[in-house]
Design a binder for these strands. Sequence first.
DNA 1: CTTACCGCCTGTCGGC
DNA 2: TGCCGACAGGCGGTAA
Length: 270
Amino acid sequence: MPELPEVEVLRRDLLTRMPKPSRIRRLQFLSPKLRTPLTLPKSLLKKPIVVTGIERRSKFLVFRLEEGVFVSHLGMSGYWRAETKRSEIKHDHVIIEWENGDLWVYNDPRRFGIFEFHPDLSEVKWFTQLGPEPFSDEFLAQPVIDKIRGSQRAIKSIIMDAKVMVGVGNIYASEALYKAGINPFKPGNRVSFESLRRLLVVIRNTLSKAIDGGGSSIRDYVHASGEKGKFQNEHLVYGRSGEKCTQCDSKIQSKKIQGRSTFWCRKCQR
DNA sequence: CTTACCGCCTGTCGGC
DNA sequence: TGCCGACAGGCGGTAA
């Protein structure tokens, strides 16, 4: 469900809600597994778990602990809910019970999400092959451009490939390509250097604006308060097939690229 | 090596 | 009304 902006908005939201002191009294797993098994080492059960921070890598949330980390992912349909009194909702899977009684509940109907403990970040296999973060300096550097220009795949598939860059999912890929004026089907090796340069800046700006707008709530995504994001109202092409392009008279097209719905304007994107 | 497709899951929606 | 297929913010494994 969520792409980088939605995870980042959630991360900031959770950080402001984290009780001080940040000690977990009890951690409950209500299902045997999400995408991967929900298990904890016995050593973790003996004393309160102390959370020292919440970070984001790619579309993953990283809960820093005094000893180790929790690595969490929302998959397609996951959300975190902050509450003071337990409300049982179908598909609740993980409950973090803080020492002050606050509850953080992870709910995920499709169970594509992840909640794992790792003694050390370095051994998290999800992170080993990731490309640069859109807000890092490396994002605009030559290696990213070389990777894109060295591929014959559709440019949309390339920017959604976490080995090339992280954070861009199906919504923001269409949005950024539209704003950059690049046809999503165009092979990476046929996009000009100048266009690519512009595209990278557009991706960064699009993600940044989406964070400012509280992310995009298409169906499932909500903040920890249950509140929806607002950025779906700013979508120029995603979910708008048949509607008029904002810059010309033609209608927004929709077609699949690698099984994912793709939206574009055939006049404005070449 | 690169690339497209499949599977993992549940819920919802549109067509018949 | 109900049934059935298509589809949904992700991601890795696999097979060609």
